[in-house]
């Protein structure tokens, strides 16, 4: 479904990605794990069309994404829930969700989907009219995922959804990801929380200083000594 080959991205003179290759098949949940600054978010922003790669290619459903604008990539069915949530703080929760569906014309179905998102995250139920910026960190993360779902993506990309959340909220977020996986959503999950990410994913990649250093089924990665010592705390 998504195939990234030899991706190189620079910030000015600094090379952030040194030829990244990976793929995500339809219906799979794939995780990319790695520490801070390894190039995870850079990779995702390049897929979403916000960063232009200097080399390599990004193919999605056999079409090249490299030359497309961000909104065109969204219209092809890719939705990125960014690191740091980036909800619209001055818009209401309801408006945030509406903006997630900004390209859709089926107004009635959009309303139904807002109900569906609220059923996934009951915390948002009584807060639809509240300003996004007044939500707690956990609620903002839920809203960010909900907003990403509103475009009905074929491929949902989540960038560090558990960052900065309490263990209970992390569990809640991962429960929703498991549910999305069960209903057949293709998910690309980028995480520092390697344990839970590998628990939920079918396959995984390890990214270090802009390069993929390991890849394989989650069950294999989980038991690899290198992953254990570097990302699972021994």
């Amino acid at each position: 479904m998504l195939e990234v080959t030899d991706l190189e991205v620079f910030y000015g003179n600094i090379q952030a990605l040194h030829g990244i290759s990976f793929k995500v098949e339809k219906g799979e949940t794939v995780t990319i794990i790695g520490s801070n600054g390894a190039g995870k978010s850079t990779t995702l922003l390049a897929i979403a069309g916000l960063l232009k790669p200097q080399k390599g290619e990004i193919k999605y459903l056999d079409k090249h994404l490299d030359k497309l604008s961000a909104y065109q990539i969204v219209s092809m069915g890719i939705s990125l829930c960014p690191e740091g949530r980036r909800i619209f703080t001055s818009l209401s929760v309801y408006e945030n969700l509406l903006m997630g569906a900004v390209q859709r014309r089926d107004k009635k179905a959009v309303r139904d989907d807002i109900h569906w998102v609220v059923s996934l995250f009951p915390d948002l139920k009584d807060r639809l009219e509240q300003q996004g910026g007044t939500l707690s960190g956990g609620q903002q993360q839920m809203l960010a995922i909900g907003r990403a779902l509103m475009s009905k993506p074929k491929l949902l990309i989540l960038d560090e959804p558990s960052l900065g959340l309490s263990p209970m909220l992390v569990n809640q977020i991962f429960e929703v990801i498991a549910m999305l996986k069960n209903i057949g959503t293709t998910v690309l999950l980028v995480e520092q929380n390697a344990r839970q990410a590998l628990e939920i994913a079918d396959r995984g990649y390890v990214i270090e200083t802009g390069m993929i250093t390991m890849e394989g089924p989650s069950s294999v990665l989980k038991n690899s000594d290198r992953v254990k010592s570097a990302y699972l705390g021994g």
């Binding site: 979403a48 069309g49 916000l50 961000a70 909104y71 990539i73 969204v74 219209s75 939705s79 990125l80 960014p82 980036r86 909800i87 619209f88 703080t89 001055s90 818009l91 408006e95 509406l98 903006m99 997630g100 900004v102 390209q103 907003r147 990403a148 509103m150 475009s151």
Partner: peptide
């Protein structure tokens, strides 16, 4: 209106506006 809310969204967070697919 969708375009009106989009205006506020773009003013609020440009990156997020791109990510949800607003045509700037």
């Amino acid at each position: 209106t969708t375009i009106g809310i989009s205006m506020r969204a773009v003013a609020d967070d440009l990156t997020a506006s791109h990510l949800v697919g607003i045509r700037l």
